[in-house]
Design a protein around this nucleic acid. Sequence first.
DNA 1: AACTGCTACAACCGCCACTGT
DNA 2: CACAGTGGCGGTTGTAGCAGT
Length: 272
Amino acid sequence: MGRAPCCSKVGLHRGPWTTREDALLTSYIKNHGTDNWKSLPKRAGLLRCGKSCRLRWMNYIRPDIKRGNISPEEEDLIVRLHSLLGNRWSLIAGRLPGRTDNEIKNYWNGHLSKKLKNQGLLIKEVVTRRLTPRDHTSKKKKKNNNNINNNEAKCINIENVKMNKIYAPKPMRIYPTYRNYVTSAVTESNDETEGTNGRLDSGDESSSGNYQEILSSSDINAEEANLLDVNHYLGSDLDLVNCDFFLQDHEVLDRVYQEYLQLLNVETDKEN
DNA sequence: AACTGCTACAACCGCCACTGT
DNA sequence: CACAGTGGCGGTTGTAGCAGT
């Protein structure tokens, strides 16, 4: 791998993890938890950076991880969630117990996108937008054609987007005022919120009671409340203020909400 | 057997949001 | 308010392994 090591990673191990490293990491986390990734490798006796340890743990070592054999039901759910959320792999993974964002991302890029394209179901890759556009000019150009899907996607004219409408909410965080309503509601009813970055536990329906009470006692109007409800269940973090896509098109909102309800039904059926 | 092309996926990178000081 | 540290995310890359020639 020919990249220059970033920041202070000089002298650290890179590349594939050995079984010994896995064992060290597993042993340390079992005994001490994952409270500080930065200092973890040193304390665990690993010559790796914290990021690398975190990635290894989150994607491969964690005991609750399912690997491989993505079922047709899971595949269907991935496709549907992707049509709703775009390339927000962590959110999609959050709806698939035991699956990681990296696995779903790889599965999509290496398998599903091609399959859908062959079936004529995917015309345009969904490109999620960040709050502040990244500067891509410094990125290295790709050398080979392995990622032709991405390159093709960038070249596709918007006029070609006809066969399959893809609703791609902006990957934004909830506007602070609204987030306060939501997080307080979720926290009151369930201590197992995701806990980081103010994001919500996407799958928890038990909190909807308090959540609705807070909404009803607030000055949020029905339209915004409806949208918040979608955000709440999807675990999304749409920006209500800037999300023209929703607020300017009631039909789109209805469709997204209906699709969301269908997703819930799919999951309920699976649980039963 | 040697070479080439392709695929899958583990791992890395840079960026960004959040939090604490 | 500004800044630094940290965790998390999505995009990208390198390589092992396989199939075809």
